[in-house]
């Protein structure tokens, strides 16, 4: 059962107000991945849980201040944007469903996955540090 939209709107906008593209359907997610098939693309599974509010969302935004970062960043909300989230999850079948979580794709192939337990108990700076290490391994975009 989806969460009431009025409840999760601020959680969505924390990312979308900062340049993250919202993908609600599987078609949107497929098209987004296709349009970034020569680049590095990061998909954030957003969530209502406390570790998303306290660590994941602010940490992800902080991580994007890094010089090296993904070319494209998109998000879907677990439990509400089930189509886009399930499509992205289907591309990494060995990863159990987890929210919040982060998937990084390079040339359309998954290269990194950050499950929920990495965010638990973390804080924005530690999450940003973790993600930036992934960016430096996989991304080339500067600035």
């Amino acid at each position: 059962m989806p969460y009431p939209e009025e409840m999760i709107a601020p959680m969505r906008s924390e990312l979308t107000d900062n340049g993250v593209t919202e993908l609600r359907t599987a078609d949107q997610a497929k098209a987004w991945l296709e349009s970034n098939k020569d680049k590095t693309a990061m998909f954030v599974v957003n969530s209502v849980c406390g570790c998303a509010a306290g660590a994941a969302r602010p940490g992800i935004l902080l991580s994007l201040e890094n010089e090296v970062k993904p070319d494209a960043v998109a998000t879907g909300f677990a439990g509400n944007d089930t189509e886009s989230v399930n499509f992205i999850r289907s591309l990494v079948p060995q990863a159990p469903p987890s929210s919040p979580s982060v998937y990084i794709f390079k040339q359309g192939k998954p290269v990194a996955y950050v499950p929920r337990h990495v965010f638990e108990g973390g804080h924005p700076e530690s999450v940003a540090g973790h993600l930036q290490r992934e960016y430096e391994k996989h991304c080339t975009k500067v600035g």
Binding site: H123, E125, S126, A128, G129
Partner: peptide
């Protein structure tokens, strides 16, 4: 134990 390789306090780095 926590299911993380390194406790968070060890993972902080300046950004």
């Amino acid at each position: 134990d926590l299911l993380v390789k390194t406790p968070w306090k060890g993972e902080v780095r300046s950004v």
